[in-house]
Design a protein around this nucleic acid. Sequence first.
DNA 1: TGACAATATGACCACGTGGTCATATGATGT
DNA 2: ACATCATATGACCACGTGGTCATATTGTCA
Lengths: 194, 194
Amino acid sequence: MPKDTFFNLNEEKQKRIFEAAVQEFSTRRFSDASINQIIKNAGIPKGSFYQYFTDKQDIYLYMAEKISEEIHKILGDQEAADPNTSFFETIMQRAEGTLKVGSIRPEYTKIGALTVIDNSEFMLQLLRVSNHKYAEIIERDKQAGLIKPEIDSEVVIKMMYIFVFNEYLYSGLDKTRYLQKVEAAIQILKQGIA
Amino acid sequence: MPKDTFFNLNEEKQKRIFEAAVQEFSTRRFSDASINQIIKNAGIPKGSFYQYFTDKQDIYLYMAEKISEEIHKILGDQEAADPNTSFFETIMQRAEGTLKVGSIRPEYTKIGALTVIDNSEFMLQLLRVSNHKYAEIIERDKQAGLIKPEIDSEVVIKMMYIFVFNEYLYSGLDKTRYLQKVEAAIQILKQGIA
DNA sequence: TGACAATATGACCACGTGGTCATATGATGT
DNA sequence: ACATCATATGACCACGTGGTCATATTGTCA
């Protein structure tokens, strides 16, 4: 959590700092990102940064939180948590959501992709939280008879999750390609390749 | 390619430097690895390093080449290129090979895993080469009717390749778990989960 | 022995990092 | 007008990085 001094700043300055963080964390993965770069982008002195945040994790988490809020606004009803959405649908919705967010704020999806790629302890922890949600969905699908009960959900999530984000990095701006690849991956997961 | 001065060194010193590189590159991914650390491990002065190698890539490629030779020796007949080995068998063999190599020289497999995780341009290039081999195998399997012809091989490789190495990092020393997970992944690929 | 080339060496450079701290500035209440 | 307190600021620190270079050491051949 940023310190009080940060929240006492006027909106404009808070925004500037937030954007500077987005700029940096969407370019380099967390462990490579540089505070010096952030303050340069934001146009604030070094000392001020530490007046506002305790360290790199602090500003990262703040940024992530704000982004998360914004994404929920962008996606709105589209992701309205229908408790009956299957794993496959969830993944597909997620990919479409990624594209939608990406068309408005491409940096946000880049941040997501870099998170998956990074393998620092801090990032792994964040990933575990989100993986947990998918595990629940898969379990529910097993109950519903949509997914074979003997399937190892951990494996499925890893194969899919890593893929979806990695592919986004490679596909870049080519949206059609991206959706095609994700769809192909889902099809493979569903039916197998043999 | 290392310079002549390196190959003029006596075996013992060459070995020491090689081991120092292994030690470093098995601990940190390429972009994070430090030349300073390597020379410290090897017990050679900074100047000497640049007398032997042009830069970090130079020593990395040299090390990779030597490791590759050694692995071929370790695996020997086990990987005797039977041109009829299917994609699934290849992956499984590969996983078993990884374990075998890992039990003798765990550092080598760690280097492999870190390579996959790194996403620097240099590393991506190396990956492309190895991916190409898998693509060929899949195409052959399609011809043989083992794999559905409409499958996007690129997607399959990505899902599998990333998974196999990533899982190795997580499973750590637990060999049984590793083989189980890989087998589960193959099963999923084969039959699908729906 | 002397001369010359190959090699060894570590001090040094410029740069970048995360983080600290003494001081300057500005706002607020008396 | 004054004192107090929150905030702003950038010089500075210790450390790490990749890379260079003048000098010292060694080996080789005449």
